[in-house]
Design a protein around this nucleic acid. Structure first.
Lengths: 227, 227
DNA sequence: TGCAAGCATTTTGTATACAGTATAAAAAAT
DNA sequence: ATTTTTTATACTGTATACAAAATGCTTGCA
């Protein structure tokens, strides 16, 4: 993750220069496959089969699996290869606790350190997200939702913070997506987001932290039924 | 035939009796080499040379390097292999900010969730640490210092938190060790630790958080001259 | 002397081959 | 029929081989 060239989520991957290493290509691909559920939790990964499917030999595939193992998306069982990691309810709750703490930290820093332009960008994302919400476009809404959270963390201008946040976020991505169903929950989340953005624009660190706190605590409530 | 790897002597973890996989062995070994400075920041890693040095072929070595790249200890440059990652002063400061936040979070949780026995264990570590301090045994002192911080995080019983904490801690390990020189700084750190343990024993979450806050902020002051 | 082009060497990236191990199925024994 | 042992097979772990890319050096020329 750290030294991986991560491309912005939601961009066309065709547009990126084809110069990315095969290793990186496979890592990105597998990560998406896990997040999107093509590879299900608990599923064993057969290197030959998957390699053939992706059109690569076992060597770079294995290297990619080691990389993802360090990210925590797969588990390496000695002499039995890689298994897609399955997270317990407590795991997810714990991750959300940490994510919450990290976003609160980022928010506080952002209130004093971020530029007006950067905050303005978040507002734009939020407005676009609301449009997708009103249009009932759940996938697009969700992607922007993620981008907003990532964006707030990015405002803190703290690379390690952004990195570990991204690490945990990728793990709960799928579960969160599934959990965001239900109209009234959805509406609640949007309202919370509005308050978050407002606090950010006002650079009111304590209010922002409080809003993020409740938003992410509610996030767990929204999600916990599906884990 | 599986290569006859000469066992790394000295720091064998007795708890893990079963022989680790070669992959895990190499990862551990390389991580230690980086933390201990055998592989210096910015240094390029030549796979053939290092592999021969460790008595393994390139394949598992490369897999280990990918793993460490994901941990952020090495950087993968396309077509030019792995380089030991060099951290800027801002990187280190940022990491300590995140570590501080995570330890504060852990401390708050620990005050309500940890058992008396577990807290007692931390006290024992602290007392032992003080003994090493008084004896001037810097390395031993430092190791226990680390263990205490890790231990406090462990009290929170939150695996993802412990994981990301450990991830960042391993990155600043070497720098911190170097930075802990100087008698008066050392004394200050010990005094802060004493207050931390006291707050923990009293299960006074706010005091504990405040003490951890200042302790780790001071930690940066102690360290920033050497980065 | 300075510079550039081409060749040689080194190093990484990927594929394949081989050995060891676990799993499953079949055969044998009770 | 059930349990145990044997055997076959599939898969992972590691090493080696080969291809592509980068680096460095030599040589030729102005």
């Amino acid at each position: 993750m750290a030294s991986e060239v991560t491309e912005p989520v939601g961009r066309r991957n065709v547009a990126t220069i084809s110069r990315q290493s095969l290793h990186g290509e496979i890592v990105t691909r597998l990560r998406d496959m896990i997040i999107e559920g093509d590879l299900q939790p608990g599923e064993r990964i057969y290197e030959n089969q998957l390699g053939e499917e992706l059109g690569v030999s076992r060597t770079p595939l294995r290297e990619a699996l080691k990389f993802l193992a360090s990210e925590g998306l797969v588990e390496l069982v000695p002499s039995r290869g890689a298994v897609v990691k399955r997270f317990s309810a407590k795991d997810v709750e714990d991750m959300l606790i940490v994510l919450r703490s990290m976003e609160m930290l980022a928010g506080r820093i952002a209130c004093v350190a971020a530029s007006d332009e950067a905050i303005g960008q978040i507002r734009l994302l939020h407005d676009a997200m609301v449009k997708h919400y009103e249009a009932g476009e759940r996938l697009e809404y969700y992607k922007l939702n993620q981008q907003i959270h990532t964006g707030i963390v990015a405002l803190a201008n703290n690379a390690p913070l952004a990195e570990v946040h991204g690490l945990l976020q990728s793990r709960v991505k799928r579960i969160r997506f599934i959990g965001h169903e239900g109209a009234e929950r959805w509406a609640g989340a949007v309202a919370e987001h509005e308050r978050i953005i407002a606090a950010l624009e006002a650079r009111d660190a304590e209010t922002l932290a409080r809003e993020l706190d409740t938003h992410l605590a509610n996030g767990w409530e929204r999600v916990k039924s599906v884990v």
